[in-house]
Amino acid sequence: MAENLWEIRRRKRMKVRDLAAKSGVPAAVIHQYEAGEKPVSEAHLRQLARALIVETWDIKSLSDPKPREERTAPKAKLSGEPRPPKPPGPRRPPAPVRPSQITHLLGLAARFADVDRTSLEAKVGKPLEELTAKEAGQLLKELQERIVLEHPPGTGQPFDRHRAYLPEGVDQFEFQYLTAAQKAEHTLCMTLFDGQLIEGEIVGFSPYHITLRQPGGEEITLSKLAIAYYRRQEN
């Protein structure tokens, strides 16, 4: 005699998410079947039967809804009604300003003739040491935005740079240097941390490695982390 889907699942000691993972039928759809909201489709019937190790005719096409006290998913979630708000937990105090943020603020302020510690503290109404980390972050953001406004990218100034969230941003200038050296076929002399000297022409490079062709024709790839410094070989 055919049984409700949820009865078979519970007898097999499976959770909805386990049945969903095993059968390939989405968990939300299984909930709808178990709630009796729609009949089980033919394709899903075969998948669910295989996952539950029963015959397709053992599963009722249209389940009787589970008894109310046995429902695990809140009804509001299925019907689209918003859940009641969670009671607020204990609030953590805001994180205090980090010393490095103050150093950074003062460093950025030094770029402007009209900004210093006094003016920053007058703006926020308290000593910088009493800021929260969030307030300091906001001040930093304002100063950085002002820098971009006054020195827009692409104006060719020596300290023109963009945020280093890409490897090209991290080593923008070294990239240009190595590109020029590669095109001009300059010989570079690399000094490694262990004192080794390796010289050659650049074959290729990435943000993390440089490949050189040594005078004997051999190629060697060096990790930049192994390199202390390098110079162009003067002919």
Binding site: P158, R161, A164, V170, D171, F173, E174, Y229
Partner: peptide
Amino acid sequence: FEGRVLWWDLGATE
């Protein structure tokens, strides 16, 4: 090394 900075980025400086 003592000298004047020609360029710098997050990885190196000349």
